[in-house]
């Protein structure tokens, strides 16, 4: 079913974009409903995926903006699983999650698609409608911001 397909394809993207699983589920649900309500504006049905992705991304940005204004205790389902990894790796992972807030919206989109979804630059370009070179630059800058933030935290 279409909802299942796009939840699987874009679910982790949504979680990484908003920062917690519950908010990501809300954003996905709202994106599906908005897509359903405005199907007439999808002029190219063969590009439904790209159209839906843009709606979802907007929902994620809105959800993040709302999330920043809410008390922390409302976010009870973190984005990341407790994994069976060495403590240092887990701490570094959490540090990245916190540092993502330093990125611009465009940098965050590109970074998440590259490093969380593992997409190629060509795929990202297709979904975002941006050039490959521009995307490489966004990801590079995002990595630099994150690296500096981590170096600051770790005193490296």
């Amino acid at each position: 079913m279409l909802v299942e397909r796009y939840r699987i394809e874009f679910g982790r993207y949504a979680t990484a974009m908003v920062g917690d699983q519950d908010t990501a589920e809300d954003a996905l649900q709202e994106a599906f409903i908005r897509a359903f309500q405005s199907l007439q504006s999808c002029r190219e049905p063969s590009r439904f995926k790209h159209w839906f992705f843009r709606i979802l991304t907007n929902q994620c940005h809105n959800a993040r903006a709302r999330r920043r204004t809410e008390p922390l205790d409302q976010h009870d389902t973190p984005a990341r699983e407790r994994a069976d990894r060495p403590m240092e790796q887990d701490e570094l992972g959490r540090a990245i999650e916190g540092a993502l807030n330093e990125l611009t919206a465009e940098q965050r989109e590109a970074f998440v698609m590259k490093h969380v979804d593992g997409r190629s630059y060509e795929e990202i370009a297709e979904l975002l409608g941006a050039g490959v070179d521009a995307l490489k630059m966004r990801v590079y800058r995002a990595r630099e911001v994150l690296r500096k933030k981590l170096e600051g935290l770790n005193g490296a």
């Binding site: 599906f32 699983e81 994994a83 570094l92």
Partner: peptide, 29 residues
């Protein structure tokens, strides 16, 4: 090295939204 490790650890831990979402969406639709 540590930076790449951090990126990999971060990505590996990102959760997929629960499958119950599908039914919730379709019920609203």
């Amino acid at each position: 090295d540590r930076f790449e490790l951090a990126l990999a650890a971060y990505a590996a831990g990102i959760r997929q939204p629960a499958s119950g979402l599908d039914n919730a969406v379709m019920a609203r639709v």
